[in-house]
Amino acid sequence: MSEERERKTDGRRSWLDDPKTVRKIVLALFVLCGVLFFADGFYEKHSHFGVEDVFGFYALYGFVMCVVLVIGAKLMRAFLMRGEDYYDRDR
């Protein structure tokens, strides 16, 4: 299987194909998110709404909304997804 894959990609591997690199990138993302989250304690907020003063509000909002969006979209698929040729079938 992996040989076939190797042939399919004609052996051109890049540093991004290495699982180690991917792991490093993900780790970097986690660290960055942590830093950004705790950065909230170190500057003055000019908020318009009370909710903005919650510690790490924007971080939490971004994360939660992203999950809500993905789950919502997956549920939508159950109702809205049709075959690729849906509109051509009657022709």
């Binding site: 993302l29 998110c33 989250f37 924007y58 971080a59 939490l60 971004g62 909304m65």
Partner: peptide, 8 residues
Amino acid sequence: QIMMFTAL
């Protein structure tokens, strides 16, 4: 924060 946590 919004962008990076979305990425996360």
